[in-house]
Structure formats: structure tokens, C-alpha cells
Simulated assay, not measured.
Amino acid sequence: MNSPDVTLSDSPTSPHTPRSRAAAPPAADSSTGLDTGLLVIRLVVGLSLAAHGTQKLFGWFDGNGLDGTEQFFASVGYPSAGAMAVVAGLTEALGGLGLALGLLTPLAGAAVLGTMINAIAVTWDDGYLSPDGFEYAFVLAAAAGALALTGPGRYAVDRALPVLREHRVSHGVFAVTLAAVTATVVLLMRS
């Protein structure tokens, strides 16, 4: 007979192995490590995108500003290139800041993902690897999509928002779907 301190394991490989009832909770370091890792990814990806957005909008960090960005969008076939330059710059800047802060993370991830899908399409013919390929946009898209799906972790503004305090995969799936649909519509407008 089992003593009160021991129960049978529910492991399928050893159904009769005794173990203590007071099993140790998962180590705090594992969740802290996960949350810290998500914070690092959010900061690197988010601030990189925010910087790219300010290059487009204001010409900061040796960027082309709105005029240069408009010319680029016109050269790759986007209609209303001036409006597209503003939309791309705002989407990168605000989506990037949202990721960095962990603010409305699924939507911030969707904003970045949709923009990067367009960047991948524009550079597709240049191959995968840099300097002209789409690898950088692909990595940013993957990171943004993953953050939309996983949520921001504990160190995020979303934790203070009742609706997003507990991240749900459905929020991420909706955000990734929204990004894909929006990016597709924008790409279909290209000539």
C-alpha cells in the first residue's frame, strides 16, 4: 500500500513508480528565462523596425525620407506611391514600437508581418541572401509572426491591459491571418 506521501506516477512508461505528492513546481527560472528571451526578441525586432520606419518617414539614420521612399515605391509598381510610403513608414515605426513595448502585441506583430511580406515580394527576384535578397525581411517576418502567436511574455505593457493580460493563441492566429490577407490585397494592387 502507498504511504500518504507517495502516489503512483501517471507516466505511461512506468505506471507504478512512486513519487512525492508535493511535486516541485516548475522552476521559476524557466518562465523568467522565457519572458526575458521574448523581451530581448521584442526589443531587437521592434526597435529595428521602428528605426526603419523613421528612415522612411523622416530620413533619420541615413534614410531616404518620404520623397525617396515614394520614389522607391513607384519604381516597384505600387500605386499611390506617396500614400504607400507613409503607410509603410507608419506601420514599421508604430508596429515596431508596439513590439518593443509589448503593446497590443498581436496587432503590432501583424503590422510588421504584413509589411515584411511586401518587402519579401519586392526583393524575391534578388534571391534569399543579402545584400539584396529577402533574408532580412524574412527573419523579421518570422519573428513578428512568432511574437503575435506566442504573446509578449511577462515584461510587456499588454500585461496591464485586461483584454490582453492573458495571451490567447486565437489572438495570434487572427493577427497572422489579418497580416496575410492585408499584405495580399496590397500586393495585388502592384502593377
Rank of each mutant, 00 (worst) to 15 (best):
P18S: 08
K56M: 06
L147C: 07
L178S: 09
M116V: 14
L90Q: 04
S31G: 06
V76K: 00
A81K: 02
W60L: 12
D62S: 12
L49D: 02
P106S: 07
L57R: 12
V176Q: 09
A88Y: 03
Y128N: 08
T13H: 05
S130L: 09
A137V: 05
A23F: 06
V157A: 14
G153T: 01
S31L: 11
L34Q: 00
F61K: 02
F73Q: 01
V157S: 06
L43S: 13
L113A: 00
D29R: 12
V76Q: 00
T32V: 12
D35F: 12
V186Y: 03
L38S: 07
G65K: 00
L94W: 08
V6S: 12
D5K: 09
D35E: 02
A179E: 13
P106E: 01
D10R: 08
V45Q: 07
M116P: 00
G46T: 14
A142G: 14
S14G: 05
A81E: 14
T54Y: 03
S170Y: 08
W60N: 07
A74N: 00
P26Y: 08
A27T: 04
V44D: 15
Y78D: 05
T91I: 10
T115Y: 00
P4Y: 07
E166A: 13
P15E: 15
L39E: 07
A23C: 11
A180S: 13
V122N: 00
A180N: 03
V173A: 03
P152L: 03
G96T: 07
T13F: 15
D5T: 06
A175E: 02
T17G: 01
S9T: 00
T123R: 09
P152E: 02
T182F: 15
L39V: 10
G109L: 03
V44A: 15
A85K: 06
G82N: 13
Y78W: 09
G133S: 05
A22R: 11
D35S: 15
T182V: 12
L97G: 12
V87E: 08
F58Y: 06
G53S: 01
A156I: 02
P12K: 14
R154A: 14
D29Q: 12
L97W: 12
E92R: 09
V185I: 15
R21E: 04
D67R: 08
G68R: 04
S170W: 05
V87Y: 11
L97D: 08
R165W: 07
Q71D: 13
A156S: 15
T36N: 09
N2E: 15
A108H: 09
R168S: 09
T54V: 08
V122K: 02
L178Y: 06
L97E: 07
A108I: 04
P4F: 13
S11T: 00
G145P: 02
V40G: 14
G65H: 03
L90M: 05
S48A: 13
L47C: 06
S31R: 11
P152V: 00
A100P: 05
S48R: 06
A160I: 10
P26M: 04
R190F: 01
V139A: 13
L149V: 02
A110K: 04
Q71A: 12
M189E: 06
A23H: 10
